[in-house]
Amino acid sequence: MTQNPQDAELKTERSRLRRSHERGSYDRDTLYSVLDAMPLAHIGYQLDGRPSVLPTLQWREGDHLYWHGSSASRAIRAMEGADVCITVTLIDGYVLARSAFHHSVNFRSAMVFGRAEKIVDPAAKEARLKAMTDGLFPGRWETLRPITEQEIKATAVLRIPIEEASAKIRDGAPKDDEEDYALPIWAGVVPMSLQLQHPEADPANLSGVNMPDHLSRIRIG
């Protein structure tokens, strides 16, 4: 089958899959569907010459991936101008095969490589924080106390261009050795998903403050 050149748009020597390459994808639509479905990311970086990983929230605007943290954070300072690796993963189910060897999980994952750039302009930084807030909680930014100059200064926002990346997806039934399909052993998939629960009000809420309508629009990713 002839591959569409766009299907390999994000494929590089660093991002290409070495194992289970049939599960890999390098087109933006597939990659973005994973990134947009899960806000929690893990960022690999070097701190004092040693490997470290930071769990944090990520969000995508166009062809850039963003995250934020304290301006005083050692991790943020170490990432600025350095190469990082950002991963996002969702588990969609346990896969129970007829042998322990072939047990697996159904999942969607994304891995993005790039050099972290710090957003310096305060107005641009505020716009990115608004995009993050409204992306997670649609319509909430305008209902909040305005962000202060000091809060903007205390918050660092970094980004990388999405130019070198891969998505990896496993779905469907177990894949057993051919002879094992004749065994009287139950096999199948146990689906799983993240679900939002009913909002719980802060006990410190003022009397008469009702839950806002925009909470009904909150989704995971």
Rank of each mutant, 00 (worst) to 15 (best):
H64F: 10
I91Q: 03
R50T: 10
D83Y: 02
A72P: 02
V95H: 03
S71Q: 14
S71R: 05
L65Y: 09
L96Y: 07
V95A: 01
H103I: 08
A82G: 13
H102S: 13
H103G: 09
H68P: 00
H68D: 10
R50N: 08
M111G: 00
Y94K: 13
A82P: 04
L65A: 05
F107P: 09
G69Y: 10
A100P: 08
I91K: 03
V84N: 04
S109L: 05
F101G: 03
D92S: 00
E80W: 07
V84L: 11
C85I: 06
D48G: 01
H64G: 03
I91M: 07
V105Y: 01
M79K: 09
R77M: 14
S73Y: 12
I86S: 06
D83W: 09
L90W: 00
E80V: 15
L90T: 09
M111P: 02
L96D: 07
R60H: 06
H68K: 03
V95S: 12
S73D: 06
T56A: 13
H68S: 08
W59P: 02
D48T: 03
R98Y: 07
I76N: 04
S52E: 11
L90G: 05
M79C: 12
S104P: 09
F101C: 05
T87Y: 04
S70W: 12
D63C: 07
D92N: 08
G49C: 05
V105R: 01
S109W: 03
E80G: 05
G93K: 04
A82D: 07
L96H: 06
T89C: 14
A78N: 03
G62L: 06
S99V: 06
R74Q: 12
F101W: 06
A82F: 02
H102D: 14
V105E: 01
V105W: 00
P55L: 13
A110D: 00
Y66Q: 08
A97T: 08
I86F: 04
L57I: 15
